[in-house]
Every structure is written in C-alpha cells, then in structure tokens.
Simulated assay, not measured.
Amino acid sequence: MSKEIQKITEQSSKYRHLEKMSTQELLKNINAEDQLVPLAVQREIQSIEDVVEVIVKQFQKGGKLFYIGAGTSGRLGILDASECPPTFGVPAELVNGLIAGGDKAIRKAVEHAEDDTKQAWRDLEAHHIQKEDVVIGIAASGTTPYVVGGLEACQSKGIITGCIVCNPHSPISKVSDFPVEVIVGPEFVTGSSRMKAGTAQKLVLNMITTSVMIKLGRVKDNKMVDMQLSNAKLKKRGRLLISEALGVSEEKAAELLKTHGSVRKAIEHETHQ
C-alpha cells in the first residue's frame, strides 16, 4: 500500500491567538520552535551523508551541482551556491542555484512560475547540464511542480537527483535518488515555511557544500585556505590564518600573502621550506 503524503508543513500551528501575545511571548515561542530544527536535521544525517558522497564522486568525474527550487527554497539554493566561490575558491559554475521565475524571482514573487513542470529542465539546459551532474530539488512542501518536473526530466536522462523537503513521502522524494526529508513539524505561523522549514533547508545546504568542499581538499586543518581575498576584511582574515598556521607575525603574514597571492600557497610554500 503506497503511503500518502502528509502535509505537515501546512498543519495548523500549535499556538493560537498570536496577535494577543506580547513581544517576548512571540520571541520565546518562535525560539522554542526553532530549537526543534537541528534535532530534525540530526535524524537525517545518514541521508545527508549519502548526498555528500555522491556529489564528491560526481565532482571528481567533472560534474557540477544544481539546486532547483521556488520562492524561499529557490533563494536558499542560490544563496548557498553563491557562497561557494568566495569561501572555497571554486569556479562559479561548479555549484548553481536556479529559481522558478528566473533572477527577478530572487527579490519578488513571480506569479505561477512554480507551476510550470517543464521550465526547470529548460533552465538546466541553459546551464549546459550533463550526465555527470547532480540536481537537488529544494521544496518545503515536497510538491512544487517546477521541482517535480525538473527532477523527473533528470531521472529520465540518467542524471542523479536528490532533494531537501519537509514532508514525508512527497512527490519530490519519489523522483529523487537521494531524498533528505527533514520533518520539522507545523510552523509557528501556520504554513509559513520560510520559518522552520527554511532554517532546516539552510542547515542542510551548509552541511552538504561544506562537507563536499572539505572532502575535495578545499579546507586545510580548519582553515579556508582557498577563499577569495576580495575585500579588506577577507584579506585581514587571510593574514590571520597565515599568521596562526605558521606562527609568524601578522606583518610577516601580510608579506607572504602579497608574495604568494593565496593563503594556501603561502602556507604550503613556507611549510615546505
């Protein structure tokens, strides 16, 4: 007997009459709900591990990672993708975030964009998707047509799929080779999945890309040795990383950074002297 999707993300909040709560009551209750999120993520560690391992494997074959989503979920995928190049020094095209409705949907909702089951594949094709890539659908409900259609198209072409959803046994999970189902329960404001569900998705995305990059050698000890030095704050962080790693003054670290152009090269050159 097939299991029916449980729309837990749409269930009524266990809190009533929010408008009558004091500011402190609102904040304490939101915080109490938020504390449930990492526990829900913890229950999915094995599924997240499976996703990480397959992404590493596909990256080593020359593949890329794509996130597809709508609304908050799409924006979270874009955020995670955009943070990989400056943090880990990887090419911008290695991790990609696609949102229903295109770039204008990053800031404003695009009406009916998420209802098009064909558009995600068109968006993926525009980014030159290939068989070595991995596509992860992000959707709190697990039902977004844009995501379902995109993952179905990928599976039909032998492309590895995964998902991050917050309802069990969803249509998106059924078209995912590597589903991650983080069941955080009803939202504080009924149906507002930008809250706990969005937090859960962000935590999982952090875990996936950080673990993948560490496995690929983009972190040395506990340091972002390949980060881009694109502003004064990051240059200072680079100097401090070199200073700590080599036991030299910040002034000496600044000289090494200027000479070698990256934290990794400075540390490795001096270590092998």
Rank of each mutant, 00 (worst) to 15 (best):
K7W: 09
S47P: 00
M213V: 05
K196R: 15
L94T: 04
V263E: 02
V110D: 07
R43C: 01
V51E: 04
E268V: 12
H272C: 00
V248W: 07
I160Q: 11
T72M: 14
A120W: 02
V180H: 02
L234H: 05
L39C: 02
V110E: 12
S82I: 00
N96K: 10
Q155D: 03
D123A: 08
D133G: 03
V189W: 08
Q273F: 05
H272K: 01
L216Y: 02
I267F: 12
K220F: 03
S243I: 15
F88I: 00
F88S: 02
Q35D: 12
I242D: 01
L27C: 11
K233H: 10
G198R: 09
R75W: 13
K7N: 08
A139N: 07
H17R: 08
L65Q: 02
V95P: 01
D80H: 04
E132Q: 15
A254N: 15
R194K: 10
Q130M: 12
P86V: 05
P145V: 03
K64M: 07
I55G: 02
V204W: 06
Q11F: 08
D115T: 06
K215R: 12
S193I: 15
K20I: 03
V37I: 12
T72C: 01
F59N: 02
I208K: 03
I48F: 11
M21V: 00
G71R: 10
S170E: 07
G137V: 03
N167A: 03
Q228M: 10
P86K: 07
A197V: 01
K258G: 07
H269W: 04
L205V: 12
E53N: 11
A113T: 07
K233Y: 09
L26A: 03
E244Q: 14
I68D: 02
L229D: 10
S230M: 11
V51K: 02
D116Q: 12
K28G: 00
D50C: 00
L18S: 13
P91V: 11
E93S: 01
F178G: 02
Q273C: 00
L94Q: 13
Q35P: 00
G198K: 14
E4Y: 05
P171L: 13
K235L: 09
E19Q: 12
I78M: 11
D50P: 03
A126P: 01
A81E: 06
T190R: 08
I164S: 05
A232R: 09
I242V: 13
C154I: 05
V135H: 09
S249E: 08
T87Y: 06
E270Q: 08
V204A: 10
I208G: 04
V225M: 09
S47C: 07
A140H: 09
E83S: 06
I68W: 04
A100M: 01
E25A: 10
E25W: 03
K220S: 14
T199V: 07
R107H: 07
S211A: 15
R239G: 00
R107E: 11
L257Q: 11
F188I: 15
Q42E: 13
V219F: 05
I183C: 04
H127W: 12
S13F: 03
L94M: 14
P38Y: 14
S82C: 11
D34W: 09
G149I: 02
S47V: 01
A139S: 15
K258C: 06
M21D: 12
Q42D: 10
K14C: 00
Q35Y: 04
S47R: 13
W121S: 03
N222H: 13
K7I: 07
